[in-house]
Structure formats: structure tokens, C-alpha cells
Design a protein around this nucleic acid. Sequence first.
RNA 1: GCCGAUGUAGCUCAGUUGGUCAGAGCAGCUGAUUUGUAAUCAGCUGGCCGGGGGUUCGAAUCCCUCCAUCGGCUCCA
Length: 645
Amino acid sequence: MIEIKLPDNSVKKYNEGVTGLEIAKSISNSLAKEVLAITVNGHLQDLTLPIEEDADVKLHKWDDQEGRHAFWHSSAHLMAEALEAIYPGIKLGIGPSIENGFYYDIDPGEHNISENNFPEIEKKMIELARQKNRFSRKEVTSEEALSRYKSEGNRYKTELLEEMENQTITFYNHGNFSDLCRGPHLPDTGYIKAVKLLNIAGAYWRGNEKNKQLTRIYGISFPKQKLLDEYLQMLEEAKKRDHRKLGRELGLFTFSEKVGPGLPLWLPKGAQLRERLENFLRNVQVEYGYQPVLTPHIGHKELYITSGHYDKYGESSFRPISTPIEGEEFMLKPMNCPHHCEIYKSSPRSYKDLPIRYAEFGTVYRYEQSGELHGLTRVRGFTQDDAHIFCRPDQLKDEFIKVIDIVFIIFNALDFSDFEIQVSLREKNGNDKYIGSDENWEKAENAILEATREKGLEVKVVYGEAAFYGPKLDFMVKDALGRNWQLGTIQVDYNLPERFDLEYTGSDNLKHRPVMIHRAPFGSMERFVAVMIEHTAGKFPLWLAPQQAVIISVSEKFNVYAKKVSNFLNNYDIRALIDDRNEKVGRKIRDNEMSRIPYLLIVGEKEESENTVSVRRQGEGDKGTMTLEQFASLIKKEVKSQIKT
RNA sequence: GCCGAUGUAGCUCAGUUGGUCAGAGCAGCUGAUUUGUAAUCAGCUGGCCGGGGGUUCGAAUCCCUCCAUCGGCUCCA
């Protein structure tokens, strides 16, 4: 007998060789039906694998990542089986599970596979799934595996095998399908009840553009049809919220082929929205001791050679522009920091001056390859809510804490309550790809960790993700649909102070090197607005909404009163316009609801005589009548509660 | 940049195998209506069918090429 300990610390005895599935069954039949994979002593494995000794185990169902991982991984195999059946001779690359579903990279050979073939493939997958073929695991020697794939002429698998040393090589088989795979897998294919192929795209073998491009097919699958339906509904919702669609419909921004791809044009309403965000941050920054600076959109090429950006952005970016007579070369700025460094250098600095915090909504230009542009989230010209803090090493922690505060002020005001924080540090076994002394790195890394600890933040620490010039702290927010976005970033930089030879005079009357912090709580205004649009589905918080209220006159007769109402509200700094079109009330309500105007105020005979408005809240319907004063104070109160820092 | 798809009025889309195929709805304009909580009615104006080249008696439709967009790959704010 062996002892199996479950996560609730209960211990049960089983015969040696008991399987996860049997353990589940011994607990309850319903659990046995739902369980998908098992972790045995920290190792995720098949439910059907015998357990030979005492172990801590955890059973995974659909509701945890490990369970879905096994499910989707098996689905990838199922898809590969279907593909091989329909397209004989294709070569398999890799087929992992991903955050939402799975994909398989294949070399289709002579076959041409497109979205049009998806229904056929899905049908085949379901047909194969219904056969409930068992997944079986088989350990083989490297030679066996190699000879098999060599005879098939599959150089992808061969390559993978050749790189695997001293590892157990396993194959997973089900039905007539067999694949090199680490597992784990479901007990059988019958678990997979619903399948949807999502898209097809080229993907370089192992992500390297020097390699051959394979065909990648993405899909998702579920243990119940209902879950697939829900997922598809969520995709529909995401489509409705797409900032590119809403940006056009709400008149926020546009693009013009003539102006150029990736160069957004902000329409009046979008510009208002963005300025409101900018001013909000400006006000916060004043409180936090930032000083605004302004710098030009271009800079001498030498500036970027000094900063090192020319190496990174020079060749792969917009070509330098040159003066007609002298032929001096200037670049569109890809970063604001070099300019800010020069501002720092414009005067001698004392340790008493530090920290110095320069803030600028600086527009930068970077060449992005044409296939990478995407609405406002990936553009060629964008504005960072940039600031650079020049401080002494001993001030790092305090400065970090202050920046974190600013980030939270913003997240609070904009209703981003779900986020992850990532600390990116050096690789553990330090190497020489990092600039700056070990001592300084350690100081900076500790400063970040202490700052986050002091703020009581839960952080994910990732080694090896730091930039070459310093460690960083990134904020990933989850939007209303649970999608992750990388927004704010705080980065320590030892590189630029070195390159620009920045100094301050210390209390010892000696020259010292300041540390620099780059930080952008929004990230970029373009991306942030895009995320805001998708997060709120265009229903911006009242304080941000370009137009807060619309006054709907029941008929022309009440336009004079409507004008009176709008004057009243405008005097209170409430952004209200009149809809005096010659339309019925129902029509005006519909149009303004669709324009996401937060408050609709209906005025007619009754309201005019009582000096009131009938209030309708966007998406919520009729709220009854109130006096103008009551309405104005309602708005004021709502705005105040939203931007409470 | 690469792979695949797409590109018809401001927007969303129809246009069968090349032969009155240049259409619809919404938006816009004009007029009527004077309206009470999610679309009032009527009329009208919009398009070199993404650009260029070719095949053909004839091209929105077939071919080539460029551009843009979309989905990915790589990278990043």
C-alpha cells in the first residue's frame, strides 16, 4: 500500500500502481468525470499513469490551468490526427497548448490549407474524438525516435530530438496517431466535445525568421458545447469592443492612407479624451514634484549614437533626415530620454538638487514593420507619458515608491482593479551582457523589491527579463474581458547616465553618477486610450467622457428651454450639448445612447414649467425628473468620486 | 518584412460561370411631420468597384504588380 496525500492534507491508502483516475473515482464519481490531469510530487502527469510510491497529489479539473493545459494539448494531437487524415504527407512541427486553446505548426507540403477547410477539419476532429481512443504513453530510445522521424523525412522532429539529451523520450499514441510529446494527456479523446478552429497563419519554425515558415493552425476546444458557445460569445463581445471599430463610430480617431500607416489622426472627441487623461496626470505629477520640459521631435544623429539608440533604432528605423546645405543628419526621436539627459547636463547639479524629475508627453517615432501595425496599440508615431527621474542611488527606493503611487492613482481613477505586477531582474547566474556594476544592480534590484514589499504588492519576479541597462517593474492590467495589457512601466537605467557622462557633486565635493528612472504610467497615450476603449466598451467614466450629457428637446417648441438648460450646465463646467434635430424623442434617445453619452436629459412642457429635466442614464433608462441644481450636483458628485486619488 | 486572407458610396454589405451589375440599408441633403423615453414618412445626392499594368470584342468579376487593411510569426509603448 502507498499513501496519497491530497491538497487538503488528507491522506488515503491505495495499492501500488494506483492511477490518478482511480484516486478520483475513490473520492467521487463526479470528480472522476471532471478530472483531466494530476500533479504527483510536483510533476504534472497523465491520470492513467500508475503511481508506485507515497506521493502528494493534486487533481486538476477544467477550472485550473493544468487541467486545461492537458485538455488543449490533447486537442492539438487530435487536430494533428485529423490533419494527417485529410492531408496525407504533412509534416508535424510542434503543437502546444496556449493560454486560450492550442495550435499546431505543420509543414503542409503540397497541400493548401485555408480557413475554408476549417469546418471539414473540425468535423473530422469531432468524429475522431467520438471514437474515444485512449492516449497511451510510450518511452523510447533516442535512436528509435530518430530513425522513425528520419524515415518519415520529418526534419523538424529530428531537429528537436537531436537537441534532447539525457531526457526520457516519450511518444503519445491514440488511435492511429503518434507524436513525440512530453505529455501529459487526457485519458482518451472522448473528453473533447466541442472544437473550434480560430485562425491560420504562417509561423517561422521555432520563431526564427531565418527558418522555414510553417502553417500554424490555432484552435480551442471544450469539454462541453455550452462552454464553446460562451467562448464564442466572448469573442463576439471583444469584436464589439474593438477600439478600431469604436474609435471610428465614436469619432475618436482615424487613419489616412495619405498621411501614412501607423500614424493616427486624433479627432476632436478623441483629442479631448486624451487631453483630459494627460491633464489628470499632469496635475498628479505637479504634486509629486515633477517639472514639465519640452523637447523637439528630431535630434542630431550624434545624440542617438551617444545614447546608443542609433544601434537599436538606427538601421531598423526611419532614415535620418538631413539639412539641405550642410548635410547634417537628424533623426526623428525614437525616445525622449536623450533629450532629457541633455537638459540635465545644461547645468551643474548638486546632490541637494536631486531627485530631479523631468516630465514630458513626448511624441516618438519608430519604424514598425508593416505587418505589425494594429489600430492604436501598435503605431509608428506615439506619445509617451514619459518622465525621467535623476536621483542618487540611495533615493531609488523612495522614488520607486512614489512612481508606484502614481500608477495606482491612475489605475484607481480608471477602474483597472485587476492587474499583475512583474519585476524583471538579471539572470541569476549573472553574465556580462548587463551594463553597470554588480553593486549598483544589486542596489537597484533591492530597491525595487523593497519598494514593492513596502507597498504590500504581490509581484511576479522574473529573472533574466531585465533590460541590459537595468531592472524594471511592469504593470499588466486585465480588462473587462480578462485580457492582459502591458501598460505602465518603471525602469532603472545605469546606461544613459554613463553614456552622457551625467554627474552631480556630492556632499564630499566629489563627482558622482546619478541613477536614472524611466517611467510611463500610461505607457503610451495611444495604447492607453485603446485599452480604455476596449475596457469600457466606449462607456467612459463620466469625468473622461468627451460629452457628459445631451439635452433632448421633445419638440422644437422647447429648444429655448433646452438652451437655458445647456447654459446652466455649461456654467457648472458640465459638458452638455443639445440635440435639437427634427426627430422624435425615441430616435434621439437611441442615437445618443449609441453614442455612449452618459446622461440624456429630456425636456418638454412639464420640465419647462417646473424648471427640471427628465434624467436618463446611459444603459440604465429613466431615472425620473430632477431640478437643474440637483442634476448638476449629481454630476459633480459622480465626477468627484471617480477621480478621487 | 514573411505567410494567409481581404479591399465595391462616409459606414455595413449584395453583386451568380467575364456580357444594362454598378446595387441595398444606414449616414448625408431637401421637404413634410412638432414629436414624451432605443429607428416618423417621402424624395434626392454619393462610387474610375484600393492604384497601376495586362488578357479579352467586352473586366468589379481572370492574370501580374504595387498599396492598404485583417489574422498570425518576430519585436515592442
